[in-house]
């Protein structure tokens, strides 16, 4: 399998207070083309930090980063900002946990979905941009894409907004889509729909996905490989099926044990 992203020894430190805080330590990740990798861990485990670093969104001055994030022959940690920006939204896209606040409230949906094209492919004509945006909105499952194109974020539900976020992230046909807890803020039924959508996009477009979640059952449904993180460190990684059937790390075992299992609990009741 062709490796498109190679992260080695990623290290992130905060220097906001007197004692530096290490958010991520010795993080490694290899992502193959068309692969879906899950990163799981509780909040504060460093999974989102790693994702933001890969997306090039950690630029605060009080932050220290080391290691390497190799993509397309460049190290995203050290390359100049212009090169980094040329990837952002075009080759590497990201969607966030909060679809309610991640869209600009005063801009129309169409404008926001088209923006990556506008920035990275100015050669595309206005009409074509609109055509592509509506096509994209349709393929993320928004049936009335022609109307949605002219709407504002507050006119859409959370699930629809997350679909819009995905449409904007996918319109440049990126090599990598980072999904940072994309379903956490959504209803359970909508969660499943979004996961199905990501699966579909991965299959159709061969987009590699980094799926970050604290929900192991979602990761199990979606990811071929999984990385388990705790307190900034990777405690275990491997094929999803292996880790689910034979977890070695005690923390992973705990996480797996914590998954609510509806089928089992029903069995228990029958036994009573």
């Amino acid at each position: 399998m062709e490796i498109i992203l190679d992260v080695t020894d990623l290290h992130i430190e905060f220097h906001d207070s007197d004692t530096p805080f290490v958010a991520v330590e010795d993080f490694d990740l290899m992502l193959g083309k068309g692969e879906i990798v899950g990163i799981v861990g509780e909040s504060g485990s460093g999974k989102s930090m790693s994702a933001l670093a890969i997306a090039g969104l950690l630029n605060r001055k009080s932050l220290k980063k080391s290691g390497r994030i190799m993509f397309d022959g460049n190290d995203l940690l050290t390359c100049d900002r212009k090169t980094l920006r040329s990837y952002q939204g075009d080759e590497i896209s990201i969607i966030f946990q909060e679809p309610m606040t991640s869209l600009n409230p005063v801009k129309r949906i169409g404008w926001q979905v088209e923006e990556p094209l506008f920035i990275h492919h100015p050669e595309v004509s206005k009409e074509n941009r609109k055509f592509m945006a509506i096509e994209m909105l349709r393929s993320v499952g928004l049936e009335n894409a022609d109307d949605v194109y002219y709407m504002y974020p507050h006119e859409l539900s959370g699930g629809m907004r997350q679909r819009v976020m995905i449409a904007a992230a996918m319109i440049g046909d990126p090599k990598i889509l980072i999904a940072d807890e994309p379903t956490t803020a959504l209803d359970v039924t909508v969660q499943a729909q979004i996961v199905e959508l990501l699966k579909k996009l991965n299959k159709e477009r061969k987009t590699s996905i980094i799926f970050i979640s604290h929900d192991l059952s979602l990761v199990n449904q979606l990811c071929q490989r999984v990385i388990v993180m705790q307190e900034g460190k990777i405690v275990e990684s491997g094929r999803t099926s292996d880790i689910f059937t034979r977890p070695r790390d005690p923390y992973t075992k705990k996480l797996i044990a914590a998954i609510p299992r509806i089928d089992l609990s029903r069995d228990d009741k029958d036994n009573e």
Binding site: G89, N104, E115
Partner: peptide
């Protein structure tokens, strides 16, 4: 959050400022 989204699409500082935040 939307400002972060704008950066993630490859906007530079001015792009985020004038196209997103100002309004």
């Amino acid at each position: 959050d939307y400002a972060r989204t704008a950066y993630s699409r490859g906007n530079n500082t001015n792009g985020v400022l004038y196209r997103h935040i100002l309004k």
